[in-house]
Design a binder for these strands. Structure first.
Length: 283
DNA sequence: GCAATTTGACCCCA
DNA sequence: TGGGGTCAAATTGC
């Protein structure tokens, strides 16, 4: 394994995590600025795209690391086609429930779960645990979740929620915030640091399975640098806005810039990433 | 003794 | 055909 390459990937993933957190905060601020009667706005839509890009990049890096870490040693300079990747965090069996992946430092989310299985995942460093809501039988709650440690950080869990809680969990805190959902933009900076998470409240009748992915990092927001900023045309619309907004926009831009600088496409097998993307997000 | 967890087996599906 | 998801018996802990 090329430890130097792995180190670059890990550093890039950490930067992406920071960037996503900052973008999430920015999304919350944008939402607050929009008039309630017309919540749709180009900036808000763009932020959804930004967050989606962060999620996809992180997952692709995760897959890339997994494949790299588990590939047998090969001669230097010999390019080997990556093994066909398995889907990550998306159940294979068809059901109408939504699925949503979060990356958290803890698995606590305010609900009571019962573990019903654990599997060693092919090519994964850590096994995956399967939980269902403790009220599955009593109240017919169909919510389940899968928990797996991420490979780049053993203290971070990739938690995939499937289905939604239909139960009235007595242990659930009353002041539980709305689910952190990048598609709804309902989260706030406080919610981003809140480890509790709930499945989204929609799409039960939609037979097409959805996968949303979010990354919540507990790491603090680092001060943005004014150098090396990738100035996106759409983001320039925020110039002249309140200082926190401008600061966040710079921070988000920086994450994009770092992401580009950290990777040598030839080193990271960019074509493999595109191959992976077709499979990993076809859910 | 009960509840939660573990783990091997089975089923589903790409 | 094989990996992922689920089931259920066995095991463990309180």
């Amino acid at each position: 394994m090329n430890w130097h390459k792995q180190g670059n990937i890990k550093a890039a993933m950490e930067e992406l995590l920071r960037g996503q957190e900052q973008a999430t905060r920015l999304q919350s601020m944008v939402k607050d600025m929009l008039p309630p009667e017309n919540p749709s706005d180009l900036a808000a839509d763009l932020l959804i795209e930004v967050l989606s890009s962060f999620s996809k990049a992180l997952s692709l890096l995760e897959l890339g690391r997994s494949a790299e870490a588990n590939s047998p040693p090969s001669n230097a300079g010999v390019r080997r086609k990556m093994q066909s990747p398995r889907r990550v965090s998306c159940r294979r069996r068809q059901h109408p429930y939504t699925c949503r992946t979060t990356f958290l430092k803890a698995t606590e989310d305010g609900f009571t779960w019962r573990k019903y299985g654990q599997k060693n995942i092919y090519g994964a460093k850590h096994s995956r645990s399967y939980y269902r809501c403790i009220h599955k039988h009593g109240q017919g709650c169909q919510a389940t979740k899968q928990v797996q440690r991420t490979e780049q950080d053993d203290s971070t869990f990739a938690i995939t929620y499937m289905g939604e809680h239909t139960c009235t969990d007595a242990t659930k805190p009353h002041d539980q915030p709305a689910p952190h959902d990048i598609s709804s933009g309902s989260n706030t900076a406080g919610a981003a640091n809140d480890l509790r998470a709930t499945p989204p409240s929609s799409d039960l009748g939609n037979p097409k399975q959805e996968c949303k992915e979010e990354v919540i990092s507990n790491k603090s927001l680092s001060p943005p640098s004014s150098s090396q900023l990738l100035k996106l045309p759409e983001l320039s619309a925020f110039e002249g806005s309140s200082p926190p907004m401008a600061e966040l926009m710079e921070a988000v831009s920086e994450q994009y810039c770092i992401s580009e600088m950290e990777y040598d496409p030839a080193e990271f097998k960019l074509e493999d990433m595109f191959e992976l993307s077709n499979d990993a997000y076809n859910c």
